[in-house]
């Protein structure tokens, strides 16, 4: 399993590096912008606290793209590289191969996400004058979005041979699911709390499971 994890980490390394760069870019861009506005005075602690809150929201928005690319890259990249036949000639089962791909994507997502949570929940309140945290991203809605984009692109990756098409297809599926969910929530007359985020969560998990089953049963190459 260690070797599979190492291989999947290496395959996803460009995406992971991009994710890290985007992580830093979100804070750097907004911080630089605020500093330019107060130039030549360096912004105070309170201003930095606000910068971090805004940047963590932007960073989490960028993270959804990284998660989408991770999902799209997971299976289709090996098919595009034509290394699937070699991989399947080795002893690991398909379930192990798939688990390794999932674990690499999951770990990357969690670490990048925790980084943003740390910035908004620990660093920002510490810098703020009153220690309060503002501008929080709704946890359920954001998790639902991440799961939906990952599940959709994972399904595309299991089905297609090109990570780019898998990403495009996954995004299209996300848009369709979200549109349907908003339409349902607009039309229903009785109150359904958190219909859209829960719907996204369910749709994402379903897409992930369908993609996984498809991969396990698919004849490759």
């Amino acid at each position: 399993m260690k070797a599979l994890l190492w291989k999947d980490f290496r395959i996803n390394l460009p995406v992971i590096i991009t994710g890290l760069l985007l992580w830093f870019a979100a804070y750097a861009a907004i911080g630089l912008n605020v500093w330019l506005q107060t130039w030549p005075v360096f912004p105070g602690r309170g201003q930095w606290s606000e910068v971090i809150q805004i940047a963590s929201v932007g960073g989490r928005a960028l993270l959804t793209i990284v998660v989408g690319v991770l999902g799209a890259n997971a299976i289709a990249s090996e098919r595009a590289e034509r290394s699937t036949e070699f991989l399947f000639s080795l002893p690991p089962t398909r379930l192990k191969i798939l688990t390794s791909k999932f674990l690499v994507a999951l770990t990357t997502t969690i670490l990048l996400w925790l980084g943003h949570q740390f910035m908004s929940d620990v660093v920002s309140p510490w810098l703020s004058a009153n220690g309060a945290s503002v501008n929080r991203v709704p946890l359920l809605g954001y998790t639902g979005g991440l799961v939906l984009i990952f599940g959709s692109t994972w399904l595309g990756s299991a089905r297609l041979s090109s990570p780019a098409f898998a990403l495009g297809g996954g995004i299209a599926l996300c848009v369709a699911v979200i549109s349907v969910l908003f339409e349902i929530s607009r039309r229903v007359t009785w109150p359904v709390p958190d219909l859209v985020p829960i719907g996204m969560l369910v749709a994402g998990i379903t897409a992930f499971l369908v993609g996984s089953i498809y991969y396990l049963r698919r004849i490759e190459p």
Binding site: R10, I11, E81, S83, F86, S89, L90, P91
Partner: peptide, 16 residues
């Protein structure tokens, strides 16, 4: 698979 070796027609593996 632990006990067999396989050489395919197209020798495609991890290029990197």
């Amino acid at each position: 698979k632990q006990r067999i070796g396989y050489v395919p027609e197209l020798h495609q593996t991890y290029r990197w």
